[in-house]
Design a protein around this nucleic acid. Structure first.
Length: 576
RNA sequence: GCGCCCGUAGCUCAGCUGGAUAGAGCAACGGACUUCUAAUCCGUAGGUCGUGCGUUCGAGUCGCACCGGGCGUGCCA
């Protein structure tokens, strides 16, 4: 696939600069970079090289810019560059260049012009990771949706991606569950709603043990029995895990999220003791107050903050499990990179884990991808009216229900099955998009009206833009049949063509800093640009080359929107 | 105490490696439906980018200090 426009412009800019500077060495960190223009009035792209180099070359930036323009080879790419302001060099792409790119994208329905990653890697994405037998609440939504999206994009860019749901299936919560199972279990309820009954047990025992010291101890004893292989507790545990997984799978199905593996904490049980022994033997860990710790005295930020890998009572912690998990992913799967999509409060934990892994000789790139909290309209952590944490399943159900009500109002003539399908697409898509359209670190306010709105940067808006592209072809009475000629004459056509070509810039940029919202912002701009085009340029009423061109732009917009939304994990509908 | 994160329009949020006059949506006001789905569009109005120094030709963006909020900080995950 062809290079992106900035890459093409940069190559020619380098050639021009070489002629301008002659033998003068450029600063070592200098890169002749070309970025999108801030404002369409200046052009499509701009370069700041002249201003950056003014000092080194001891010359007026506008003079350098003039030299660049003089030597710049624009043939077959853009118009002759212009100089504006203190020394910006502005580029405007030729209409033919844009038309050729549109044609190339139409011929590439799978990748739509996006180039594969230069160095494909094996990437393990660790996300979602709910606790078994504890409610999957909205906090998990960010990890699940972000992680799934990053995995989709990495895969699309040609990386070998392995998704692993590292579920908490061996935590201390099982002490409570076991006691609850033995004393409070309602068999009939378990039959009818297994996950709900497990949740009830957890909540009930958790509430009781907060007041009851003796119960706390009893639960702990149940946990120890489980960890020592007590057959009865082991059998109950297995049943709980199986039931929970079934409940979780239903949510993942609804979200269209898939995992290659579900290797939870329990999978690593046998590896923890040898791991700790190894750490001790190699002098990486030491015993302190009866616990086995890894100290990081040479890292200022971590000095005095050891990672504890074995408690003084002999038990292991999640730091131990996480280290064993890294080993497995590197040794068995050949991971070059592991991405952890986990809430921001765990920053310290991952700093410790990564430092400990480095000391053990792990060279895989370990990335902590943190995110902020979801807040209620009161700006506090999202809770139900009764004060419980909000469950993900309830959120999704309500989203679909609300979407359904809107469809009923706007488009009552659709048949039942289609209404239900559209409600699912819009409802789930809205929840996902609300998450992905925002910078992941901001604590964001969960608001139904905003995320389901048809205006603004929302899933319904984008899906509607897609629907409009499809409506054209429905009206036409057939699918897009290719374009004889593509001739961009109107500004609105050129603007749309340029925006479409920039899909190739937007998708890879997501992985720069793990920002799906960069892709969301792009899609919103694309939808906006399409609407502008749609208003100004009649499509079916046009004739000849104009009609061909516009149908092609319409088709390509639909494809890019659909693919872009798919990369976010969001489905589209043909009608809404 | 120390560490991390956040602070941008009345509200909800964008603003990638520092670049031109800081952008959207909601709410407010004014326009465009014999339609290619008006669920879309166009326009008006709205700002000491928490504060202050500093680096720079140029700072919402980088550095330092402070203010305000959130979260972490040795045996939960």
């Amino acid at each position: 696939m062809a290079d992106t426009f900035p890459a093409l412009l940069e190559a020619r800019l380098r050639d021009a600069l070489a002629k301008v500077v002659g033998d003068t060495p450029l600063p070592p960190d200098f890169a002749a970079s070309v970025g999108p223009a801030q404002n369409a009035q200046f052009g499509d792209y701009q370069a700041n090289a002249a201003m950056v180099l003014a000092k080194t070359l001891k010359a007026n930036p506008r003079q350098i810019a003039a030299g660049i323009v003089e030597h710049f080879d624009a043939a077959g790419l853009c118009e002759s560059p212009t100089i504006d302001g203190p020394g910006f060099v502005n580029f405007r792409l030729a209409a033919d260049t844009l038309a050729a790119r549109v044609r190339a994208m139409l011929a590439d329905p799978e990748k739509l012009g996006v180039a594969p990653a230069a160095e494909p890697k094996t990437v393990v994405v660790d996300f979602s990771a709910p606790n078994v037998a504890k409610p999957m609440h909205v906090g998990h939504i960010r990890s699940t949706i972000l992680g799934d999206c990053l995995a989709r994009i990495a895969r699309f860019l040609g990386h070998r991606v392995i998704t692993d749901n590292h579920i908490g299936d061996w935590g201390t919560q099982f002490g409570m569950i076991l006691w609850g199972w033995k004393h409070l279990l309602d068999e009939a309820a378990l039959e009818k709603d297994p996950v709900g009954e497990l949740l009830r047990l957890y909540r009930e025992v958790n509430a009781r043990q907060k007041e009851d010291e003796a119960l706390r101890e009893t639960c702990k004893a149940e946990l120890v029995k489980l960890q020592n292989g007590d057959p009865e507790n082991l059998a109950i545990w297995e049943k709980c895990v199986a039931l929970s997984k079934r409940g979780l799978q239903r949510i993942y199905d609804l979200l269209d999220v898939r995992f290659d593996h579900w290797l939870g904490e329990s999978y690593y049980n046998d590896r923890l003791a040898p791991l700790v022994e190894d750490l001790l033997a190699r002098g990486i860990a030491e015993v302190s107050d009866g616990a086995v710790c890894v100290f990081f005295r040479e890292i200022e930020a971590l000095d005095g903050k050891p990672a504890i890998v074995r408690k003084s009572d002999g038990g292991f912690l999640y730091a131990t499990t996480d280290l064993a998990t890294i080993d497995h992913r590197v040794e068995e799967w050949g991971a070059d990179a592991i991405w952890y999509v986990v809430g921001a409060p765990q920053q310290l934990h991952f700093d410790q884990i990564f430092a400990a892994a480095a000391r053990r000789g792990i060279t895989a790139e370990l990335a902590f991808i943190p995110f902020g909290s979801i807040l209620g309209k009161d700006k506090k952590m999202l809770r139900t009216r009764s004060g419980d944490t909000v469950q993900l399943a309830d959120v999704l159900a309500e989203a679909v229900e609300r979407a359904r009500a809107i469809i009923e109002e706007k488009n009552p003539e659709l048949d039942e099955a289609e209404k239900a399908e559209i409600a699912r697409v819009i409802g789930i898509g809205s929840v996902k998009y609300a998450e992905l359209s925002q910078y992941r670190m901001t604590d964001y306010v969960f608001d139904w009206d905003t995320m389901l709105s048809l205006k603004g940067n929302t899933a319904p808006y984008l899906i509607n833009a897609y629907v409009r592209t499809r409506a054209i072809f429905r009206k036409l009475g057939g699918e897009f049949a290719g374009a004889e000629t593509i001739a961009l004459t109107e500004d609105a056509e050129k603007a749309l063509a340029l925006k479409l070509a920039q899909f190739a810039e937007a998708v890879p940029s997501v992985l720069n800093d793990f920002r799906p919202n960069a892709l969301a912002a792009y899609l919103y701009e694309l939808a906006n640009t399409y609407h502008g085009f749609y208003e100004k340029c009649p499509i079916l009423r046009a004739e000849g080359a104009a009609r061909d061109t516009r149908l092609a732009l319409c088709e390509l917009t639909g494809r890019v929107l659909k693919k872009g939304l798919d990369l976010l994990g969001i489905a589209t509908a043909e009608r809404m």
